[in-house]
Lab assay of single mutants.
Amino acid sequence: YIGSKISLISKAEIRYEGILYTIDTENSTVALAKVRSFGTEDRPTDRPIPPRDEVFEYIIFRGSDIKDLTVCE
């Protein structure tokens, strides 16, 4: 799965898409590269977040912050 395009939804209901870079089982983290944030879209939340235009080089997510993770390709 390393190198695959991943769609990830955080506990804050924010969806991110990026390339799976590393999975650290010891620290329970997932790192994505070339990440875009799509905001909360239409998911119900107390704090709606708009999508962002910039592409983040890397984002490291803690396993406890991840609600859903899907391989896109």
Rank of each mutant, 00 (worst) to 15 (best):
A33K: 15
I19F: 12
D68L: 11
N27V: 03
T70G: 13
R43H: 06
T40K: 10
P48H: 15
T70A: 06
R15D: 00
N27P: 06
G63I: 07
V55E: 14
I23K: 04
L32P: 01
F38V: 01
V35P: 00
S10I: 06
Y58T: 14
Y58W: 10
Y16Q: 08
T45I: 02
R36L: 07
K34F: 07
P50N: 05
L20A: 10
L8P: 01
L69W: 15
G3N: 04
L69K: 03
R15G: 01
F56P: 05
S28G: 11
A12E: 14
T45D: 01
R52E: 14
R36C: 10
E13Y: 04
K67W: 04
K34G: 11
E17T: 10
D46E: 07
P51S: 11
G18S: 02
I66Y: 09
T70C: 06
G39M: 04
I59R: 11
E41W: 03
V55G: 06
F61A: 05
L20Q: 02
R43K: 05
S28A: 14
S64T: 09
E41M: 02
I19C: 06
S64I: 12
E73I: 08
P44L: 10
V55S: 07
A12M: 07
I14R: 11
I14F: 03
T22Y: 13
K11P: 02
I49C: 13
I19A: 02
R36Q: 07
E26Q: 09
G63Y: 06
D46M: 15
A33Y: 07
I66M: 06
E26M: 10
K34M: 13
I14H: 00
L20W: 02
I6C: 10
K11R: 12
T25M: 04
G63V: 07
Y58I: 09
D65S: 07
R52V: 09
R47G: 09
L32Y: 00
S10D: 15
Y16C: 01
P44G: 14
D42S: 07
D46V: 11
V35Q: 02
P51C: 08
P51T: 03
E13S: 08
D65K: 00
I6K: 03
T45W: 03
L8Y: 01
Y58R: 15
P44N: 10
K67P: 01
E41S: 00
S28E: 14
F38H: 04
I9N: 02
Y21Q: 15
D65W: 00
K67E: 03
V71I: 13
F61P: 01
K5F: 04
E13M: 15
R52I: 08
I6L: 05
G63C: 14
D42M: 13
V71K: 09
P51Q: 09
D42T: 07
G63R: 13
R36V: 13
K34R: 09
S10H: 03
R15E: 02
G3S: 03
L20I: 06
T70S: 09
D53N: 08
I49N: 05
I14K: 05
K67T: 05
S64V: 13
I19M: 07
T40M: 00
I23W: 15
E57P: 10
Y16M: 01
P48W: 09
I19T: 11
T29S: 12
R15K: 04
V30M: 12
L20G: 06
G18N: 02
G3V: 01
T40L: 04
E41F: 02
E13W: 07
C72S: 07
R15W: 01
T45G: 07
I6N: 02
E73V: 13
D42P: 14
E17V: 11
E17N: 03
E73G: 10
K67H: 00
K67N: 00
V71S: 11
